[in-house]
Amino acid sequence: MKKLKLSTVATYAILIVWSLVVVFPVYTMLINSVKPQREIFRNPFVPHWPLTFDGYETVWNAGRFDLYFRNSIFVTVVSLTLIILLGSLAAYALAMWRSRWSTAIYIFFIAGLMIPIRLGTINIFQIIQSMGLTDSVVSLIPVYVAMGLPIAVFVLTAFIRGLPSDLIDAAHVDGAGELRIYRSVIMPLIRPAVATVVIFNLIPVWNDLWFPLIFIRAEDQRTVILGVSLLFGQYQTNWTRILAALSMAAIPILVLYLLMSKQFIKGLTAGAVKG
């Protein structure tokens, strides 16, 4: 009995210490972003009253964060919509059509899970240039869609194959066409799997630095992450502003995560454990 208690204490000790190690930097970032600079250095670990939002205000105006947020939201929403739309169409076909060809196409998609798209950057950049899309947030969309399709096809095909087949057969008997079945039978049923795919792609698309860094120069086309990366150099010595910029980029995802942490964790681990 005594031994059991000791192990419980040790379990809590380890997990709580690590949780503090995780929370501490995020906490310091947030509380110091609403302090005057000299208070940060005087007492970095305690909130300072009254809160000041000068850092946020300066960064928001100087960095045109209204534009950056609009760009990031635009790219993320359009990319995710296309990933779900094209991915579910393909997954429906792959789940229904059983042949050597469909297996080959399926494997071709799945291979993309193991190969980082970054390695093709040079040629992608050439394609973007030849399409006249350089220096535009639009250029990011096809890249993110291509990047997100393997996981979408993987998760959605498995899910559709697991659906009871009489549902689809019954719709066939009623004379519904494939597009109709896809729209009114399949789509409503695969919602949980769609949520997984959305979460799986939301984080890497929103947080991506690589492609904006390479494709985008113009200020009005920057994404939030690219904007932060450029501001960081500019405000080297003004910690209030730096921390405000970092917090501003982190807060939307942080809030979303804390509201839906169960779905996030399930979504991000779903694919790998099954495979």
């Binding site: 169409l89 890249v143 494939e178």
Partner: peptide
């Protein structure tokens, strides 16, 4: 089968054009 191919086409086109081919061309 033709319908399945049509369903697959948009995803395949984007995946090939922006991921598979670029990797190969690199």
């Amino acid at each position: 089968k033709l319908i399945w191919l049509l369903f697959l086409l948009p995803a395949l086109l984007i995946y090939v054009r922006f991921m598979a081919l670029p990797l190969f061309n690199s």
